[in-house]
Each structure stands twice: as C-alpha cells, then as structure tokens.
Amino acid sequence: MDIRHLTEQEIATYAEYLNEGTLDKISSEEKEHIKNCDACNNEIIAVADILEQMHKSVVEESITNNIGLNISKKKSVINYTLIGIAASIILAAVIIMLLSEKEASIKPRIADQQAIEQDIYTPVIDSNSTEEVVVDVTEKEELEITIPDVIEEEELLAYICNDDLEQLSARYNTALRGDIEITTDSIVEIAAGTPYMLQWNTSEAGEEFIIEIYDNKAQLIIEESVHNSYEIRSELKEGLYYWKLINSDFDLLFCGKIIIR
C-alpha cells in the first residue's frame, strides 16, 4: 500500500502550527503519520525553521531601522531596558519618600500656629501676685475665634514660630533680670497699623539700651537705641515678631513676642 505523504499545503499548515505551539490542531491520523514518516517530519521542520528565520530577520531589521542599533546588541538593549525600568521604579520610590518627609515637616509648624492661638488666650501670669492663677478651659472655649477660617498660605507662614527665638522668649518669661522690670506682656497682640509702646523700668535714669526686632524668619528688621520705652511702628506688617532688649554691655535682658494682626 502506498504511503500518502503530506501535500505542500499540509506541510505549510503544520509548520505554522509547530511555530505557534498549536500542534493539537492536527488530527490523530496525521500525527501518527508525521511521527513515523521521516520525510514529512523533516519537511515540516525545514519550513518551520525558514519561517522562524524570516521573522527573526524582519524583527532585527525593524529594530535596527527604528533604534539604529547594531543587530548584535539587541540582547543587551533588552537587558539595559529591564535595568532602566527597575532603576526608574527605585527613583520614583525615593522621590515619593522625600516628598512625604517634606510634607511631614510642614505639619508641626501648623500645629505651632495652633499653639500660638492658645497662648493668646492664656492669661499672663503676674510674677508679683501671690494669687494662684487658674486657667479656665471652658472660658477659652467660649472665646470668639478671631482668626479667619480660611488663611492664605502666605499669611500662615508669617505666623509660624521660629524655634530658636521661641526658646529664647520662653527663657525670659519672668521679665526680670537684674534691675530691669519689663512692664509689657511677654506676648503682645496688636492690630495692624496700631502703635504700641514696649515699656520697662530701670533703676538708672537715662540708661541706654538697644532694642532689636526680628521677624519669624529671625531676620533683623529694626535696631535702635532707646531708654525705657519703644513705640512699635504702625508700618510693621501682620505677622509674628520677636523683640530683644540689650543693655550697653550687650547683655540680653529680655526677649518677647509681638503678634500683629
């Protein structure tokens, strides 16, 4: 009995199946023949091989044309691409982490702003009084909040405390050093455009002092020679300021806070 070999059409079809990995499309009878027939087996493999080479040439040519790389460097391009993707992911992660840290550092300053608001409503303790001062929390809650609900970012930044100057003003809260008695409150709140007198008592009449006013960025705005008082100028903008009183020996006598609204 003559063996029926595969036709060219069948060879072509099965060669495509072989490359696609879809050999299960071939009938079991044909499979049996292919398994046992060296000639048909080899023809299928030959055509599949040529197809594979043709596709490979087309892919390599398109890569060379599009990217302009040497064909022999195709594999290293793929490797570098994978490394590039991994590096991009790591870089993105680092950027996200840095941005998160920056956001986290701004939040405590806003919390400080809330602390300033509390300071305003905390009664100033008179160091000469023997009375026990009781802070009534409920009273505080009844106080009308004058700060606008929506504060522009720029305005908010003007009220952010300066850490170093805060520590300094906290240290000089007693308002008494040597023969000097500061009669002005340690924290003063005044309306913008309203003049205000900073005052202190000194044992020596005519004694000269230096007053320095800083903004909340610790920038020196005003430096003047004074005697026992100083009038805050009305042209100071809204924001938080610190003032220092220095004697002629350049000793720091006092540091207070001024809030202009």
């Binding site: 060219e8 059409q9 040529i50």
Partner: peptide
C-alpha cells in the same frame, strides 16, 4: 490554510 509565503516555502523546499 496557511500564509502564502509559508506555502511557497513548502513548495520551494520540496
């Protein structure tokens, strides 16, 4: 049942 190119390859190969 296949691409024309594949069929031509099969014919030329034979």
């Amino acid at each position: 049942k296949s691409k024309v190119s594949t069929y031509c390859f099969a014919v030329l190969n034979r």
